Amino acid sequence: MKNARNNELSDRRGAAAEAKAALLNAYRDAKDKAEPTRLAKQAERQAVAAAREERRAERERVKLEERAQAEAAEAERQAAAEAEARADAEAREAADKDRIARVIADEAARKAARDLRYANRKARKS
């Protein structure tokens, strides 16, 4: 038989209090024994968190540098495209002016030839 003696309420209450005190003491002992390892683990977690934050900051810095380089390259490309467009426009304008000058020169040559023919005709008639 397990509990052969007669358990009164006060006996049961006392046994429960002793068991509770024993559990509390066991918890405190375990907590005190685990304190150095807990502190070591906490320090390790803090070191890992600091390293993670440092890596995140490094990635952010690299990302900002890459973004700045990309923006500079884009600005350079855009400036080159604008310069090329300006050069093309200037070349077209120069070609147009040259063509106009040739047309004017051809007109002047035709007019001079016509005037010469007119003068020759006049000279033959007189």
Results as ranks from 00 to 15, higher is better:
Arg77Pro: 05
Asp88Leu: 12
Glu71Cys: 03
Ala91Phe: 00
Ala85Met: 09
Arg59Thr: 03
Lys125Val: 10
Glu44Asn: 04
Ser126Cys: 13
Leu9Asn: 15
Ala119Phe: 07
Lys122Trp: 09
Ala91Gly: 01
Ala72Leu: 13
Glu53Tyr: 02
Glu66Gly: 02
Arg28Gly: 00
Gln46Ile: 01
Ala26Glu: 14
Asn25Pro: 01
Ala68Phe: 09
Glu76Asp: 15
Gln69Asn: 13
Val62Cys: 08
Ser126Lys: 13
Ala119Met: 11
Ile100Cys: 05
Ser126Asp: 14
Thr37Cys: 06
Ala72Gly: 06
Ala16Phe: 13
Asp106His: 07
Arg61Pro: 03
Ala19Asp: 08
Gln78Ile: 10
Arg56Ser: 04
Arg114Thr: 11
Asn120Met: 11
Arg38Ala: 11
Tyr27Asp: 08
Ala112Gly: 03
Glu82Gln: 09
Arg5Ile: 10
Asp106Phe: 06
Lys125Met: 12
Glu71Ile: 08
Lys41Pro: 00
Arg28Ala: 09
Glu66Thr: 09
Arg12Val: 04
Pro36Glu: 04
Lys63Gln: 15
Lys41Asn: 12
Glu93Trp: 00
Ala75Gln: 14
Asp106Thr: 01
Gln69Cys: 10
Asp29Ile: 05
Ala94Met: 05
Lys20Thr: 06
Ala47Cys: 04
Ala19Lys: 07
Ala21Gly: 06
Glu76Lys: 14
Ala80His: 10
Ala22Ser: 10
Met1Gly: 11
Arg117Thr: 06
Lys122Ser: 13
Arg61Lys: 06
Ala4Ile: 15
Ala112Ser: 13
Gln46Cys: 04
Ser10Asp: 15
Asn25Tyr: 03
Arg45Phe: 02
Asp106Met: 07
Glu65Asp: 09
Ala57Asp: 11
Ala81Leu: 12
Asn7Leu: 14
Asp32Thr: 09
Lys122Pro: 01
Asp98Glu: 13
Glu8Tyr: 14
Ala22Gln: 08
Ala4Leu: 15
Arg102Asn: 05
Glu35Trp: 06
Asp115Ala: 08
Ala22Phe: 05
Arg67Phe: 04
Glu60Trp: 00
Ala40Glu: 12
Asn6Asp: 12
Arg102Leu: 07
Leu24Gly: 07
Glu71Asp: 14
